[in-house]
Design a protein around this nucleic acid. Structure first.
Lengths: 142, 142
DNA sequence: TATATATAATTGTATGTACAACTAAATAAA
DNA sequence: TTTATTTAGTTGTACATACAATTATATATA
C-alpha cells in the first residue's frame, strides 16, 4: 500500500535527522534570543570563556565544525567586541573581552532553558536517551 | 571533574542532532553525487516524479521545508530542465520533464545506497531504530 | 454584491556552513 | 643547511535554508 502521510521520507535517517536538527535549531535560536547571539555563536563564546587562549583548532573540535566555519564565527564575535584573537606563531589564541565574559551567565541560562524546553516536550529521560544515541551514532560515522 | 573530551557539547540535543545531520548530509551528497543533484533536490524531484502535478504546498509538507525554500529548490530544478511549473489559480502545479523522469531510477538507487551506507556503519536494526526515535521526537516537537 | 480574511506562492534579504585554494609557520628529510 | 612536507588559520565562493514582506487568488462575512 502507498504511503500518503505528510512526511514521506520519515524512514530516511538523513531526512529525519535534518528535520529534527532544524527544529532544535529554531528552538535554540529562541532560547538564545536574549543573548543577541545565534546558538553557534553562543556555544563558541562559552568555550572561549571556559578556556581563554583556546585555539580555533580546538574550538572546531569542540563544536564539530570545520576550521573555516570557526573562523567565520570568530570574525563576527570579534566584530561584536566579544572576543579577541592574537597570532602566536602559526596558531591563533582566542580570548573573551570583558563584554564577552559578562555574557557568560546569560549564555549558560539560555542553554539551560533550551535543555528544559526540549526535555519538557520529550520527557527528560527520553531526551537524554535520544541525545546519547544520536551522539553514539555520530561517533560511528566520523 | 572537568570534561576534557573533544566534543564538549555532546550532552546537548541541539548540538548532537546538528552534528549528526551534517554528517548524514555529507554522506547523502556523496550518494547523490552521480545524479548531479544535492540530496534535497533529489528528494524533491522524486516526489514530483511520484506525483506529477503536485503543488509546492504539499512538497513542503513532504520535505518539512518552508514554502520559500521549496520555491528556491524548484527554481533550480526548473532551470536545470528537470521540472516545469504551471500556475493554476493561486496554486502551482509541478511536473517532471522527460529528463526529470529519466533521472528517477538513479535517484532511487542513490537513496538506496545512502541507506545501505549508514546501515553498514550503524547496523541496520540500530539505524532503523534510531530513525524511528528521531522521527517520533520531531513529531513531538512540531 | 462588496468587503474582509485566509491561503498559495514568490521575492528580497540574511545567515550558517562548507569546500577549495591559499598563506604562513613548524617540522622532517635531503 | 636547504628543501620538502605537514599543520593552523584565513579567504573567496557557493549553497541550503529561513524570515518578513508582497502578490494574487479564493473563501467567508457584511
Amino acid at each position: 500500500m502507498e504511503k500518503t502521510g505528510k512526511d514521506k521520507y520519515c524512514n530516511c535517517l538523513y531526512y529525519s535527522a535534518n528535520a529534527l536538527a532544524r527544529m532544535l535549531t529554531k528552538m535554540a535560536e529562541d532560547s538564545f534570543g536574549r543573548t543577541g547571539l545565534a546558538p553557534s555563536y553562543g556555544f563558541l563564546l562559552m568555550s572561549v570563556n571556559d578556556k581563554p587562549g583556546i585555539q580555533p583548532k580546538e574550538l572546531s573540535e569542540h563544536m564539530q565544525l570545520t576550521p573555516s566555519t570557526v573562523t567565520r564565527l570568530l570574525e563576527k564575535l570579534e566584530y561584536k567586541g566579544l572576543v579577541e584573537r592574537s597570532a602566536v606563531g602559526r596558531a591563533t589564541e582566542v580570548r573573551p573581552t570583558s563584554d564577552g565574559v559578562k555574557l557568560q551567565p546569560l549564555l549558560r541560562e539560555s542553554w539551560q532553558n533550551l535543555y528544559k524546553e526540549y526535555s519538557n516536550l520529550l520527557g527528560e529521560d527520553q531526551a537524554k536517551k535520544l541525545t546519547k544515541e544520536i551522539h553514539e551514532a555520530s561517533q560511528l560515522m566520523q
